[in-house]
């Protein structure tokens, strides 16, 4: 994909602009203005060198709902109100889609981390947030494959589409691997982990029934 001017804008700026535009759109009360704005946003897609397919893809999942809303609004309120609501939703969705499609995932993660940095005194640890993001991205395909394997195994046993037969083994496997993953992270992080000293006594206390009772409620 070629990089347009929209691609090159900093992620933080795009997110701020999106938030501002999203709030502004709520105040538009004339359906004709709203439709003009919608067309304007739609025009930004070719500017961002995104094809018509990308635009349609953003709206298609919403289509059934937009139709229902349009009819409901039109019949209950007025057709101009219906047009306003539909155009507003489509505009919001397209604007947001535009930002997503022109910004790399890594840049968005980095922006999220930067936005969280000032919150550090409140107990938000950007390092942990970034670890959580990375872990989720790493294990998403692993769990999806696991789900596929469980599905095959259950089908072979004639359990077919039983959601219980699928979800339960998947969850138990995920929980089991969580232990190993946490151990591996701890073993590999040779740095000052604020949890290291705290966690040790807690682990020893595991065998103490009184302490175990206390951990029921965090």
């Amino acid at each position: 994909m070629s990089r347009s001017i929209l691609h090159r804008l900093p992620a933080g700026l795009k997110l701020t602009a999106l938030a501002a535009a999203g709030s502004a759109v709520i105040w538009v009360s004339d359906w004709r203005v709203m439709v003009d704005l919608l067309l304007l946003v739609a025009l930004a897609f070719p500017v961002a060198r995104l094809g018509r397919g990308a635009l349609v893809q953003q709206l298609r999942p919403l289509l059934p709902m937009l139709v229902v809303l349009f009819l409901a609004q039109g019949l209950m309120a007025s057709w101009t109100e219906a047009a306003l609501v539909i155009a507003r939703i489509a505009t919001l969705v397209l604007m947001a889609g535009l930002v997503t499609l022109t910004t790399r995932t890594e840049d968005l993660i980095a922006t999220v981390e930067r936005l969280l940095t000032p919150l550090a005194p409140l107990g938000v640890n950007p390092g942990k947030v970034s670890l959580a993001f990375s872990l989720a991205l790493r294990f998403l395909p692993v769990i999806a494959e696991e789900a596929e394997r469980v599905h095959e195994a259950q089908s072979a046993r004639g359990l077919g589409n039983s959601p219980l037969a699928l979800a339960l083994p998947l969850i138990v496997r995920v929980l089991k691997s969580a232990e190993d993953i946490a151990d591996a992270i701890e073993a590999r992080s040779g740095h000052d982990d604020p949890d290291c000293p705290q966690e040790k006594p807690q682990r020893r206390a595991r065998f103490n029934p009184l302490a175990a009772l206390k951990t029921v409620k965090e």
């Binding site: 640890n125 942990k128 294990f139 692993v142 769990i143 696991e146 995920v174 232990e179 993953i181």
Partner: peptide
């Protein structure tokens, strides 16, 4: 928050991934 252990982070991440799956 800082009171989350590595283990907690792993559970949080895995359940986000699981819900996605």
């Amino acid at each position: 928050s800082t009171s989350l252990s590595t283990r907690d982070i792993v559970y949080i991440a895995l359940f986000a991934a699981l819900t996605a799956a």
